[in-house]
């Protein structure tokens, strides 16, 4: 392992991060692993070989959806098919109103200019979720997988703050650019900061009712367009490591918001009959000591949630 890390560091010193040669080497390694062991797994996806039948699990949300990559061993036991599970989303383009904006359409010219200036992910304005299939990056030779299961999460609606274009009305999440960058980088690009302040206004966080209405619409669209099984992940409803007795001094509206979202999602599940993987319950069972965030899980958490996820799929008879 040490040798491998040293080799990667040496390569990056000469070729830089994410160089073409590193990508090529990674792909070679993944293909070799797939050929020899029948399965290859990375942080956001897992691909495994089976018979001619194909099954695909598509995750679209924040980093909590990465648990589907951990589900590979259990998925393989549950099905003889060739399969892939890919968490394709990122927190900055999967808030429910951003997802719906890709369906409702935006001014392409205005979006192009903003995308370039803010270095936005192109997926922010593409209806990626509603496309019929997906190809796992680096495994193009496996072809496209169907979206039999779509995994969504409420974590991005809970946490992301969006901005609305004053003239054209579309939403953006510039997080990951200078909002999340080092302050020196932000100050070094003050023109963009001023331009952003002039053209955008804060849209803030989504109210719970609006989120649930969006979730309902998204579930309907996924079912209509893809015929896929929809599974939602909820999130942890306590603040790990936080010891507060007097809520007057240190109230946690985020924790309460997460709890209320979890309850509202159950009511929506009752209405629409989708399944919820109760990440909150699983995390509390395993123990959250040492967890830095309510969605950034440790390996033992990911494995426990992934196992529960596959149990849910079995009970939904996804593999039959």
């Amino acid at each position: 392992m040490k040798l491998k890390k040293r080799a990667v560091r040496t390569l990056r010193r000469f070729a830089g991060d994410d160089s073409a040669i590193e990508t090529k080497l990674r792909r070679m390694r993944n293909r070799t692993a797939l050929r020899t062991s029948g399965m290859t797994k990375q942080t956001t996806y897992v691909v495994f070989r089976g018979d001619e039948k194909r099954i695909g699990v598509f995750g679209y949300g924040g980093c909590d959806t990465w648990i589907i990559a951990e589900s590979g061993p259990w998925l393989r036991r549950a099905t003889s098919a060739t399969g892939a599970a890919w968490a394709a989303g990122r927190a900055q383009f999967t808030r429910s109103d951003l997802i719906l904006q890709t369906v409702d359409g935006v001014d392409a010219d205005a979006v192009a200019e903003v995308s370039e200036r803010l270095q936005l992910e192109k997926n922010m304005f593409q209806p990626v979720l509603f496309e019929p299939g997906f190809v796992v990056p680096g495994h193009e030779q496996m072809g496209a997988f169907p979206k039999n299961v779509v995994v969504l999460t409420m974590s991005t609606d809970l946490s992301r703050t969006l901005y609305r274009h004053k003239e054209h009305g579309f939403l953006v999440d510039p997080g990951g650019f200078w909002l999340a960058a080092d302050i020196k980088e932000a100050l070094g690009d003050l023109d963009t900061v001023k331009w952003f302040a002039k053209n955008f206004e804060k849209a803030g966080r989504l109210p719970l009712e609006e989120s649930m209405a969006n979730f309902e619409r998204i579930v309907n669209l996924v079912r209509q367009r893809l015929g896929a099984e929809v599974v939602y992940l909820n999130t942890l409803t306590v603040d790990p490591g936080r010891q507060v007795f007097d809520y007057k001094l240190s109230h946690s509206p985020h924790r309460t918001r997460r709890r209320e979202y979890a309850l509202a999602l159950i009511e929506l599940s009752r209405k629409m009959d989708f399944s919820i993987v109760d990440a909150d319950r699983i995390l509390k069972g395993v123990g959250v000591s040492g967890l830095g965030d309510f969605v950034k899980y440790m390996p033992e958490h990911k494995k426990a949630i992934a196992e529960e996820f596959v149990r849910v799929l079995r009970e939904r008879e996804v593999f039959s």
């Binding site: 942890l236 409803t237 306590v238 603040d239 790990p240 490591g241 936080r242 010891q243 995390l283 509390k284 069972g285 395993v286 123990g287 959250v288 000591s289």
Partner: peptide
């Protein structure tokens, strides 16, 4: 709820 989550309910 927070205390049980810290130590693990299992």
């Amino acid at each position: 709820d927070g205390a049980v989550a810290e130590v693990g309910g299992i």
